Amino acid sequence: MGIKSFQGRRAEPEKIQSAPILVKDYMSHSLITFKKDDPVINVIQALMKYKISGAPVVNDQNELIGVISDGDCMKQISESRYYNMPIGDRRVEEFMETNVPTIDKNVNIFDCASLFHRHGCRRFPIIENGKLIGQISRKDILYAAIKLRAQNWHS
């Protein structure tokens, strides 16, 4: 009688079941926003006060019409020298960026990180039914990564 080797059924590798980590879980809901008619000096003061690098520009229906950043404010400061105009006499609409990429709240944070890398922007406004409902920033993604590491990667 020959000896047969018997190997039991191998256990399936454990799959970690976790819900997707979505933009909506980490986005900011309460935002500093500006209107197109706001003076740029108000933007500069708000960026400093709230320690942010930019903010969405919305109309009266809370629809996104642009974004204004600290870089846009720098342009205004630079131009004020050439035009001999005091800082702050110019309006947001003259300096805001109107070609603004937005992101869906149901995108996972890994894809969002790739989009940040690809677009080189600091924030993505989040639109739902035509209205601005939030924003996700690079810092929000970094926070999500640290939180995920603490939950899953025990080191």
Rank of each mutant, 00 (worst) to 15 (best):
G130Y: 04
F95R: 00
S78K: 12
P56W: 01
I109Y: 03
A11D: 14
Y50S: 07
S114F: 10
I146V: 15
L142K: 07
S30D: 13
Q151K: 15
Q17L: 13
Q17K: 12
R149K: 13
Q151Y: 11
D89I: 15
E14L: 14
S114N: 14
Q151T: 15
L64P: 00
I32G: 05
L115S: 06
E63H: 10
Q61G: 07
A150F: 08
A145C: 10
I103T: 04
A113G: 05
I16E: 11
M74W: 09
K51D: 14
L132D: 00
K36I: 08
I68H: 01
P125R: 02
V58T: 06
L64H: 02
G130W: 07
R118G: 09
L31Q: 01
I127L: 07
E14V: 12
Q76I: 06
M85N: 12
P101S: 05
G66L: 00
D89S: 14
C73K: 01
D25P: 04
E128N: 09
N42H: 09
N84R: 13
R90F: 07
I52Q: 03
Y83E: 13
L132C: 02
D89K: 14
R90V: 10
E14F: 13
L64Y: 01
K49P: 05
C73D: 01
M74T: 10
V40Q: 01
A113P: 04
I44S: 11
D25I: 04
I141F: 05
Q45N: 15
V23Q: 00
E14I: 13
M96W: 00
H119G: 06
E14Y: 15
H119E: 12
R90S: 13
